[in-house]
Amino acid sequence: MTLHTNQIAGHIKAGVLGLALAAPLALAGAAQAQTYPDPAQTLDWTIAFGPGGGNDIMARTIVEILNTYDFYPGNITLENRAGGSGAVGWGHLFGQAGSGYGISTTSGSFVTTPLQADLPWAPTDFTPVALLATDDLVLVVSGTSDIQDIDQFIEFAKANPVNIGGTGTVNVDFIVPALLAQSAGFEFEYISFNSMADQTTALLSGAIDAMAGNPGEILGLIASGDLRPLAYSGNSTPDALAGVPTMAEAGHPIGVSMPRGLILPPDAPAEAQTFWIETMKKVVETPEWAAYIENNTLTPTFLFGEDFRSFLGETQSGFEEVLRSVGAIQ
């Protein structure tokens, strides 16, 4: 995956040089892709969650970048279609099959919701544009704990019954410690909480031994020493967690993460897919995007087109396998 990223990054850099001259190039690209996008058509951008959530912030950031740099010639309407953990919004996009003027951002629920509910669609049904980043988790213990690093933790977990907290069960919060335990050979009880806030208080109160969570919300507690980070599940540790090893570096590669990407309706025209792949390659090179990645402690990971589709398929079957083995889904 790293190799892939580098290749693409090089490719983007070459293309991006001309971008300071801006719009003409974008328009030339559009003309090349025949009639797409038609500036007279409004782009219907679905946000499958309410305002203020991770998915919402990502969508609004991308649209802000598209507008600032004139990457998209027509009008864009952003609409929050929340409900059913994303089922409503992505269902709306699914209903626009064949169109190139519907678009949506994905997050973890894009993979997990179809596992929990009877939905007419699967993640792989949509026309994939790009995987732009992944949400990865940091394993933390309380600052008062004797455990200083991941090796000590594994040692402790082999000798004692440990409790690890996370948010929900059909979630990467459970999958990551489960895979870590499998690889390192320890057993644990998973304590499922309703929110990151609940699990953080439980950890601070000493009720649980460790938890896996998104680093963004707990960076403050890590900085103050109230929480101690042990390992990060992504491919590379973000700057804010400098010095913390990845689980792969600790000898336990996890290889699962929540996809933050962009999709079009099923069977969208090929020129629409091409246009968006080219556009997103420009978007991820902007300083605004870099700031977004940093503020939300995401791992930048790029996969375009069909590669993104197969990533979604693999992620979902990986999840399904682990969750089925513990009986969380049937």
Binding site: Q116, A117, G168, T169, V170, F174, S192, F193, N194, L323, G327, A328, I329, Q330
Partner: peptide
């Protein structure tokens, strides 16, 4: 609703 512990609906 989904049972928080087992993840079953």
């Amino acid at each position: 609703g989904v049972d928080l512990e087992t993840g079953q609906g």
